[in-house]
Write a protein that binds this DNA or RNA. Structure first.
Lengths: 200, 200
DNA sequence: CCTTTTAATTAAACGCTGATTAATAAAAGG
DNA sequence: CCTTTTATTAATCAGCGTTTAATTAAAAGG
């Protein structure tokens, strides 16, 4: 009933993102609605439109946090002293583990449908690039000095795409059911093949 | 106003799938609604529920056609007399081309959210398997007689996942913008690496 | 201190969605 | 010809994102 400014816009933004994160984790994509988010933070959906342009905007902010968390997970997988081979493998597994442990966030990040003519903002692409660079750094070490930056960039994208495809098809149950052990076997098989192919 | 049986259930099913296909192609995922499909075929949404259990059921039937079409596209890419290397590459490109040329269908197939506890029906998994077998057949030729069926199966999944990841991340604009020529370069780079890695 | 202004918040509304239910109208059976 | 059956629709329900008008409390002005 129309009190004024118990929370600042920034606080409301923060509360909304936190509530959305919680709903997402507990109920999946279906649990994410403007009314639901607002209710979870003790407000009404209309208030959200003071802190975000629309739900897509809110989702984009949520996705930013997912990307940042992912980059952290990938970075933590690297052991600077370890051989690049091992690091690439560790990063790959960290990518897949992150997708499995944050499935709703992963779906919101990679499967959300955007409106016509939507283009990702620059900060979004830049933030994504940080994860890509973690791949590229270790692949650069792996390929050695004679590899061009362009080749390293291609290798990074190739490895990322491979891992992404595994998660998109298998970890989401879309191609067929695989026990976790078989999935791990597939992951190792694919990483082995890729590393051999990139090195050779 | 309740006329009766101008079309049989099978005809209605067919009309619905055809209309849905048209809407999907013309307007994308957002254009797919029970009311829209029904209107496009001169009926009302309620009638759809006589031919399908619900919209998910209709979508599943639609996806079946997409899978069949995909298997045909992959099969057509194979030249029996050609070396397996070339055939694998051709199948990969056919997979990506199919995804690009049937984007809404591809999204409906691979990005649709299903209700809690959903499991794909057996015919769905079997139909998907046909496409996988096209990969596996050529990879079997490539790897030679000394490769175990299990290894061939792994190789098929590895190659499929790699291609799938490329489309999911790049062709849908989700990682960054790449000109088509760069995308083609990435595809070749990745196929080269995989083929080398699998052979070595 | 009281009134007016301002703005945060909500309630209500709009046009959608998938799905269900009751009403309707045409065909089929006797 | 009348009754029963049933395909189809209209109406309804609960929910969605979003916008608008109505509230209501805090801030500002005198």
């Amino acid at each position: 009933m129309g009190r004024r400014s118990e929370h600042s816009i920034e606080e409301i933004r923060e509360m909304a993102l936190a509530s959305a994160q919680r709903l997402l984790t507990e109920q999946g994509l279906a649990g994410l609605s403007t009314r639901g988010i607002a209710k979870a933070m003790g407000y009404t959906s209309g208030t959200l439109y003071q802190a975000f342009r629309n739900l897509d905007d809110l989702v984009l902010q949520l996705n930013r946090r997912t990307i940042v968390g992912m980059a952290q997970a990938l970075g933590n997988a690297v052991t600077p002293a370890a051989p690049p081979n091992d690091n690439v493998r560790a990063i790959c597994k960290a990518y897949l583990t992150f997708g499995r442990e944050h499935r709703p966030q992963w779906e919101l990040l990679f499967q959300r449908q955007w409106p016509d003519g939507f283009v990702y903002p620059a900060w979004y692409v830049a933030e994504m690039g940080k994860s890509l660079m973690i791949f590229e750094h270790e692949l650069g070490r792996l390929l050695g000095a004679k590899a061009s930056p362009h080749q390293v960039s291609m290798a990074g994208r190739a490895v990322w795409c491979s891992m992404h495809g595994i998660h998109a098809l298998y970890a989401s149950g879309r191609l067929e059911r695989l026990g976790v052990s078989n999935l791990d076997e597939l992951i190792d098989f694919q990483i082995d093949a890729l590393l051999r192919g990139l090195a050779g």
